[in-house]
């Protein structure tokens, strides 16, 4: 009897032997391949940093780094004596980012409070996907909207407004960022435990008092992190400012004038025919480096805030 019985153990053993070589190879090769794909993400960062660094160093061989930082004029296209002072591009970028945040923070935060504290589940289920659609619209569409709708509208309200100005793209970038701030802030507020709200309500607070004095402080780290990420997005935004902001590097904080942002300058050079190896060609890397450092600092601050100051319940 023993002889006729098929041994399952032996079957498995035989099967393993047959496939062991091939199987073992796959088991060893797959992790290595996957590890390489993960390494490529690191290589991308290294590539960005080194690309910007090398070309920027070449740029600083021709233009003094001190002039780049301290000079207040940006006239790279002058045949004789071009001026490379980054200040006007930075002021243009920050001005537009400031306007964007003045629009996005109050509206985004108010929408977040409404969705998290007041809205019923049904309202939330309808509104949130629509806000996501707003976030998914390409920036080129917003740029078109800024130029053909918002600017003419603003010109009716503010008579002296020039066709290219900082106000219109600033407002539109703000609108673009609203869903991001609303959704990240709402996530932070939803994470506040229900018991804290119930406690405050039981003490006789109105919903507004619960929202502002209990939920908001408890979720503050997440909310501030969403603001910082919003600023970073506004600084890196390209097409809206290129289309509606103009290309006049002005050192001004007057929102009705045309300005130029760092991103818009890079686009302007890319569209033109600055030959490879010219000072103007290298200047876009110096500007890109400045932009990269700005946004990197913002992103690191946001990560730091949301980790360091998170209230655990």
């Amino acid at each position: 009897m023993q002889k006729d019985k098929v041994s399952i153990a032996k079957l498995i053993e035989d099967n393993k032997k047959k496939n062991r070589y091939k199987q073992g190879l796959i088991e060893k090769a797959v992790p290595i391949f996957l590890f390489i794909t993960a390494l490529i993400s690191i290589l991308t960062t290294i590539g960005i940093v080194f690309t910007l660094l090398f070309e920027t160093v070449t740029f600083f061989d021709r233009v003094k780094i001190l002039d780049f930082i301290t000079s207040k004029e940006w006239f790279p296209f002058f045949e004789q004596d071009p001026k490379f002072g980054i200040a006007p591009l930075i002021s243009g970028t920050l001005l537009i980012a400031l306007i964007a945040m003045l629009v996005a923070i109050p509206i985004g935060l108010a929408a977040a409070i409404y969705l998290s504290e007041y809205a019923s589940d049904n309202v939330r289920r309808v509104v949130k996907p629509i806000l996501e659609v707003l976030a998914g619209i390409p920036t080129i569409v917003y740029g078109f909207f800024a130029l053909t709708f918002v600017t003419p509208l603003l010109q009716k309200i503010i008579p002296g407004l020039s066709f290219f100005n900082a106000l219109s793209p600033g407002i539109v970038i703000g609108i673009m960022i609203i869903p991001m701030i609303a959704s990240l802030s709402e996530d932070a507020m939803s994470a506040v435990p229900r018991a804290m709200r119930e406690g405050a309500l039981a003490l006789g607070s109105t919903k507004l008092e619960v929202s502002l004095k209990v939920v908001l402080p408890a979720a503050l780290s997440g909310i501030i992190a969403s603001f910082v990420l919003g600023i970073s997005r506004a600084i890196g935004e390209t097409m809206i400012v290129t289309i509606a902001g103009g290309s006049s590097p002005n050192l001004t904080f007057n929102p009705t004038e045309a300005v130029q942002t760092m991103t818009a300058y890079i686009v302007q050079v890319s569209l033109g025919d600055a030959s490879f190896g010219s000072t103007i060609y290298y200047s876009i890397y110096a500007v890109g480096m400045t932009l990269f450092v700005f946004t990197l600092i913002m992103n690191l601050i946001a990560q730091f805030i949301s980790k360091r100051f998170r209230e655990e319940y």
Binding site: L52, L229, T238, Q303
Partner: peptide, 17 residues
């Protein structure tokens, strides 16, 4: 962390890369 930061790099910088 690197992936989180890459997601925040402005798209135009990828263009330069």
């Amino acid at each position: 962390m690197n992936i989180a930061n890459l997601a925040g790099v402005p798209s135009i910088v990828f263009g330069l890369l």
